[in-house]
């Protein structure tokens, strides 16, 4: 039974870390005032680019070195795609939901077309050599040891690093404060000398990078190929940003909660308690979403949405 407990923890990590990375990515963009609805497309772009890189570097580089570089490549792809969205939103003042949705629709189709053109098939497969079976000393730590340091991927640790970076950036750095200002009151920020457009571009670039990275971190543990799907996790991440009230720590907890519920839904078949209940599999599938709705009912009264979210910034308007 203890094995199931550790296993549950490991699975939860695999589920919650990519979700959190992508949600944090969305947060960077939205805190600066640009709605980022294109997380699904960004994840796909990153996953595609990363998978292509892994596939071509399979014989050249050792396992996790390749994976680390692939994560960077995925991030860069995310930035490239995000520029489409941010150019339209920041410089041209176009509707942000429109360009976000356009990216979500364009990227899966585009990656399929590219994959077929380059590889002849729609799936991009790679050998999954990145599983870390055990990290020597740390895995002996009671309870958290086996959960965090066995059967894990480096993307899990990178996820936590991203979280820490995000908290530091927003609380301590000048860049973070400027970003915050730009999202709440761009006119006031501009009058203080902060360049709104430049800040927004930087924020969305970071957003694209992490979203792409998150996309690759999502598919690697779950399949040995990229098949133009991230199972709707991009949209889920959008929901988590809102659920987490645009704050990093809350987003962490929102992701944890969601992942916890999802993992129960996935592994209930080996937990005798749930088997005995005899519930239909659909009940388990619904639980994460119902739980989120219930929590939101109680917590949505006061919304911390950035005040200038979604409004194109026009310098001529004061």
């Amino acid at each position: 039974m203890i094995n199931i407990f550790y296993f549950f923890g490991q699975q939860m990590l695999l589920c919650f870390v990519p979700l959190m990375i992508v949600a944090l990515a969305g947060m960077y963009s939205e805190r600066s005032g640009i709605i980022n609805f294109s997380l699904e497309g960004l994840m796909l772009a990153g996953a595609f680019a990363g998978a292509m890189f892994l596939r071509s570097m399979q014989t050249v580089l050792p396992g996790n070195v390749a994976y680390s570089l692939a994560l960077v490549v995925a991030g860069l792809a995310g930035i490239a795609v995000m520029m489409l969205h941010s150019y339209s939103s920041v410089s041209l003042g176009g509707s942000q939901i429109v360009s976000g949705m356009a990216v979500n629709l364009l990227i899966p189709a585009l990656t399929i077309v590219l994959a077929r053109a380059i590889l002849g098939v729609l799936q991009v497969d790679y050998a999954n050599r990145f599983l870390i079976a055990e990290i020597p000393v740390l895995s002996a730590v009671p309870i958290i040891g086996p959960i965090f340091f066995r059967q894990t991927y480096i993307s899990t640790f990178i996820g936590f690093i991203v979280f820490i970076i995000t908290v530091v950036v927003f609380k301590k750095t000048r860049f973070g404060m400027r970003l915050h200002a730009v999202g709440e009151h761009p006119q006031a920020a501009e009058s203080l000398g902060i360049k709104v457009a430049a800040t927004r571009y930087r924020a969305t670039a970071i957003s694209g990078f992490f979203a792409g990275l998150g996309g690759l971190a999502f598919i690697v543990p779950n399949a040995s190929e990229y098949a133009a799907s991230v199972a709707g996790y991009g949209y889920l991440a959008c929901a988590v940003v809102i659920f987490g009230q645009w704050q990093p720590i809350r987003i962490l907890w929102a992701s944890v909660l969601f992942a916890f519920m999802k993992t129960i839904a996935n592994v209930y078949t080996v937990i005798p308690f749930f088997i005995a209940l005899g519930w239909s599999t659909y009940v388990y599938k619904m639980i994460p979403y119902i739980a989120t709705v219930i929590i939101l009912i109680f917590t949505s009264k006061k919304s911390s949405q950035p005040k200038a979210l979604g409004e194109p910034y026009d310098r001529s308007v004061k």
Partner: peptide
């Protein structure tokens, strides 16, 4: 009544609706 954000409400209810009516 609860000030729920439309996007997260929509996404959640999509799945709840799908699973519920399927069940």
């Amino acid at each position: 009544y609860f000030n729920m954000h439309p996007i997260v409400c929509g996404i959640m209810m999509n799945y709840i609706g799908l699973f519920l009516i399927t069940a």
